[in-house]
């Protein structure tokens, strides 16, 4: 092979390699730029559904971050949102519509709708979340974060 053709050949290889290399960079970057289909999780507040999804005197367990939260619409159509993790031994609590209380089935722990532990084993109240309404939807968020 003479020098001239060898150089040409090498240059072609270099050009091809560079193009492939650029491709290997541009491909992931362009995919990165496409916004993901899952809507941006807004960690400040969680959309827990429409007001009309909740019947009077009922509740829903929703997932807030890694932990469950309970959203209650009470008899007066006031909404309450609390962590749903019992402060006794971490069972998930539920809403008792007959007494309008939050109830932990594990050892009969009872909280009021403000989250105060009012009877049974739970040593501490449940944390309350802030509730906001927007376009007929309910959003809950952590209170006073730094």
């Amino acid at each position: 092979m003479n020098k001239q053709t060898r150089k040409k050949f090498l240059d072609t290889l270099l050009g091809g390699g560079l193009i492939a290399w650029l491709g290997a960079i541009i491909y992931p970057v362009s995919r990165y730029l496409v916004p993901p289909r899952t809507p941006d999780i807004n960690p400040d507040s969680l959309d827990v559904g429409k007001v009309s999804d909740f019947q009077t005197n009922s509740a829903k367990i929703v997932r807030f971050g890694r932990k469950p939260a309970i959203v209650v619409r009470d008899k007066n159509d006031t909404f309450h949102a609390l962590t749903a993790v019992c402060t006794h031994l971490d069972c998930t609590v539920q809403y008792k519509s007959d007494t309008e209380q939050i109830w932990c089935a594990c050892h009969n722990g009872i909280y009021d709708l403000q989250g105060n532990n009012i009877s049974g084993p739970p040593p501490r109240p449940l944390t309350q979340f802030k509730i906001n309404f927007k376009n007929g939807k309910i959003f809950i968020s952590r209170e006073n974060m730094a």
């Binding site: 150089k7 270099l14 390699g17 560079l18 290399w21």
Partner: peptide, 19 residues
């Protein structure tokens, strides 16, 4: 795949230097 491409390029560059 990326490593293949980079290795290929590395070899070509090396050959270029040699040339």
């Amino acid at each position: 795949v990326a490593s293949l491409i980079i290795s290929f390029l590395v070899i070509v560059v090396y050959l270029q230097i040699r040339s």
